[in-house]
Design a protein around this nucleic acid. Structure first.
Lengths: 120, 120
DNA sequence: GTAGAAGTTGACATCAGTGTCAGGTTCAGT
DNA sequence: ACTGAACCTGACACTGATGTCAACTTCTAC
């Protein structure tokens, strides 16, 4: 599929998809004229990338771990180095703390929302 | 307490604390010489602010909802307007989705980490 | 073959919280 | 009173994913 369709199906902008490619997160075949041509599996991959971005990982780290991930194309093609594992473990801890924070913030929001509509 | 101690106790930089004040998120008494003087309750408030920042809320929205929050100083001093409630409800939904994303990302990280140290 | 939609690259803008530096003032302990 | 630590304001830089615009090319349907 071409970039427009991929953008539409993933909800990620065309601009971002090109950026992902520039960062080595996503590859694409090219037509004779130079247009990008994506396989079906790109949809899953882009969604995965978006999730990792949302989790606060940098494109550089995502690029490092992508080959170690199991995806629609099959098993991981590489095994994380100890250095990377350390890094990812730290990220995991950060994400864990972030989730805790988010849940607390959600509770705070609920409290304010409830207080406003609470009388009813 | 003064700004240095507050920074240390909250883990937030002095720079950020001044920024919070500039954004109307935090107030401080001043000594004769102009130094900021914070009450004990500032510690909780700063931590709350940090959590909301971590949840992706802008300083403007935090400023709007802060007076509606119950904190160490007691009950809320204001009730959220319907407009604000709508806004916060949308934020709540966003945070919910974000938490889902984060948990999925955490699982992906675990997978990569496990694959690397898995044999053992 | 032609028109219009969709694609290409490249460059610059944005946002918002935070880091950092400069030049000056205040505070606290001796 | 003096000194060093801590604080003050103001300004500028950065980060990094994304938006946007320009000038051009390719694709597709008629």
């Amino acid at each position: 599929m071409r970039i427009g369709e991929l953008a539409e199906r993933t909800g990620v902008s065309v601009r971002s998809l090109r950026y992902y490619e520039q960062q080595g997160l996503l590859t694409a075949d090219r037509t004779t004229g130079g247009h990008r041509e994506y396989p079906e599996s790109a949809v899953d991959r882009v969604i995965r990338i978006q999730e990792l971005f949302a989790a606060g990982l940098s494109s550089k780290k995502i690029a490092l771990m992508l080959p170690c991930m199991r995806d629609a194309d099959g098993g991981p093609s590489e095994i994380a180095t100890p250095r990377l594992v350390d890094d990812l473990t730290a990220e995991r801890a950060r994400i864990d703390r972030l989730i805790t924070d988010l849940m607390r913030s959600r509770d705070v929001l609920d409290e304010v929302i409830d207080a406003a509509s609470g009388g009813r």
